[in-house]
Simulated scan of single mutants.
Amino acid sequence: MRTDNLILLKTVSSHYQLELSFFTHLHDLGLIEIEVMEQSPYIHENQMHNLERMIRMHHDLEVNPEGIDVVFNLLQKIEHLKKDLMAAQNRLRLYEN
């Protein structure tokens, strides 16, 4: 199998000085996807932005994985509400003109 666009989780773990269990916990909560190839866990590079946000929350704010899950769920809801508001505003503009 090809590992293009995949980052070895052990590398991420050592770079951010976190235990692999932290990433496994995030995976168990459904926050990240871990791919196992040749008995090594990998993460796709397109997940790194959100993963880095989670790591900053954990390091800087001392938020545990369950708290990170709550925060990310709330952020997703906010984004959904923003899109709904934008759509409603666009429809309203049609009637105003």
Rank of each mutant, 00 (worst) to 15 (best):
M1V: 09
M1D: 06
M1F: 09
D4W: 07
N5Q: 13
L6Y: 12
L6M: 12
L6S: 01
L8T: 01
L8I: 03
K10H: 11
T11D: 15
V12T: 07
V12S: 03
V12G: 09
V12Q: 07
S13P: 01
S13D: 03
H15A: 14
Y16L: 08
Y16C: 02
L18D: 01
F22A: 10
F23S: 08
H25G: 02
L26V: 10
L26Q: 04
L26H: 05
D28I: 08
L29V: 09
L29T: 14
L29K: 12
L31M: 09
I32Q: 03
I32R: 02
I34N: 03
I34A: 05
I34G: 02
E35S: 11
V36D: 00
V36E: 14
M37C: 11
E38A: 13
E38L: 07
E38D: 15
S40W: 05
S40A: 13
Y42S: 09
Y42T: 08
Y42P: 07
Y42M: 10
I43A: 00
H44F: 06
H44C: 02
E45L: 02
E45A: 00
N46Q: 14
N46P: 00
Q47K: 02
M48I: 08
M48F: 04
M48N: 01
H49Q: 08
H49T: 00
N50I: 08
N50V: 03
R53H: 11
R53D: 08
M54E: 06
I55Y: 07
I55H: 08
I55C: 07
M57W: 15
M57T: 05
H58P: 00
H59Q: 12
H59N: 12
D60R: 14
D60K: 15
D60W: 09
D60Y: 13
L61G: 03
E62F: 12
V63L: 15
V63K: 07
N64P: 04
N64E: 11
P65H: 08
P65W: 07
E66G: 03
E66W: 06
E66M: 11
G67Q: 09
I68P: 01
I68N: 00
I68V: 10
D69N: 15
V70H: 10
V70F: 13
V70Q: 06
V71Q: 06
V71Y: 10
V71W: 05
V71L: 11
F72Y: 05
N73V: 02
N73A: 08
N73M: 06
L74A: 00
L74S: 00
Q76M: 11
Q76Y: 09
K77I: 02
K77N: 10
I78K: 10
E79G: 09
H80W: 11
L81K: 04
L81D: 11
L81P: 00
K82V: 06
K83L: 14
K83G: 11
D84I: 05
D84K: 08
D84W: 05
L85T: 10
A87G: 04
A88E: 13
A88L: 15
A88C: 12
A88G: 08
Q89F: 03
R91I: 04
R93V: 06
R93E: 15
L94P: 02
Y95P: 02
Y95G: 01
E96Y: 04
N97P: 13
N97M: 14
N97Y: 12
